[in-house]
Amino acid sequence: MNLSFVVRTGLIMAFVVALAACSGSEETAQAKPEPVHFESGDECHVCGMVITRFPGPKGESISGKEQQVRKFCSTKDMFSWVLQPENVNRDHVLYVHDMAGTEWDKPDDAALIDAREAFYVVGSERTGAMGPTLASFAEESAAEAFASEFGGEVVAFADVTMEHLSSGGGMSSGMGGSHSM
């Protein structure tokens, strides 16, 4: 009887632990925040420029439990922030515009996608805020078509480096200059 009690107690404990582990992962999956729309007065977290005054894809970060939103006037500025050593391992959700689903000159926030799943064209002739930027796409084939038309190299999120940001890329200098990193 004593052994039976120990076995039942052990099984109950194992069931409770398994149940808690399952509910924790469901909670995490449901905790992903929705993208936040860009408003006319929003300023870039990196450079302070008014975001909606410029063409090209924008980016945003929503951080951890506090759900702090940081908005960026370009994907280049978003990456320059994300790739900083103090931000690389932070718990944040990132969004960018899918440029296959919106106009370059005025990106529509209905086209915001998960930045970590996107493909980027680095070094194209298309410019965004302050010059060269990284064109973002949900589908690799759309990024390749863009690169065929406007030049550049297609890279996945995980492959974007600080060198991609500082290379300047692109044939057009746009407004000139770049943000310091």
Results as ranks from 00 to 15, higher is better:
Gln68Ile: 06
Ser74Phe: 07
Val17His: 00
Gly59Tyr: 06
Gly56Ile: 07
Leu94Tyr: 15
Val36His: 09
Ser74Arg: 00
Tyr95Asn: 07
Arg70Met: 12
Asp42Ser: 02
Cys22His: 07
Ala111Gln: 03
Asn89Tyr: 04
Ala111Asn: 10
Pro35Val: 02
Thr28Glu: 13
Ala29Cys: 13
Gly101Met: 07
Arg70Val: 02
Lys71Trp: 04
Gly101Glu: 12
Lys58Pro: 08
Val69Lys: 08
Thr102Met: 11
Ala110Cys: 06
Met99Trp: 09
Val69Phe: 12
Val88Trp: 04
Tyr95Asp: 03
Tyr95His: 11
Ala31Arg: 05
His37Val: 14
Ala29Phe: 10
Glu34Pro: 06
Phe79Ile: 12
Ala21Leu: 12
Ser63Lys: 01
Gln84Ser: 14
Ser63His: 00
Cys47Thr: 08
Ser40Thr: 13
Pro55His: 00
Val36Ser: 13
Ala31Gly: 02
Ala20Leu: 06
Ser74Ile: 10
Leu94Thr: 02
Val82Arg: 15
Glu86Pro: 02
Gln30Thr: 13
Glu60Ala: 06
Leu112Tyr: 09
Glu66Arg: 00
Thr28Cys: 10
Cys47Trp: 03
Glu60Trp: 10
Gln68Ser: 11
Val17Cys: 05
Glu27Arg: 09
Thr75Lys: 00
Ser80Val: 08
Val36Phe: 04
Glu34Gln: 10
Ala21Pro: 01
Asp114His: 07
Leu94Lys: 01
Tyr95Phe: 15
Val46Arg: 13
Lys106Ala: 15
Met78Ser: 04
Thr28Trp: 10
Trp81Asn: 08
Ala20Asp: 04
His92Ile: 05
Cys22Gln: 09
Glu103Ile: 11
Ile62Tyr: 08
Glu26Leu: 12
Lys32Glu: 15
His97Gly: 00
Ser63Tyr: 03
Met78Gly: 04
Gly64Thr: 06
His92Trp: 12
Pro57Ser: 10
Ala31Phe: 03
Ser23His: 08
Ser74Pro: 10
Val50Asn: 04
Thr102Tyr: 05
Lys32Asp: 15
Thr75Gln: 02
Phe79His: 11
Phe79Ser: 14
Gly41Met: 11
Ser80Gln: 13
Phe38Ile: 07
Ser61Glu: 15
Asn89Gly: 10
Ser40Trp: 07
Ala110Ser: 14
Gly56Tyr: 10
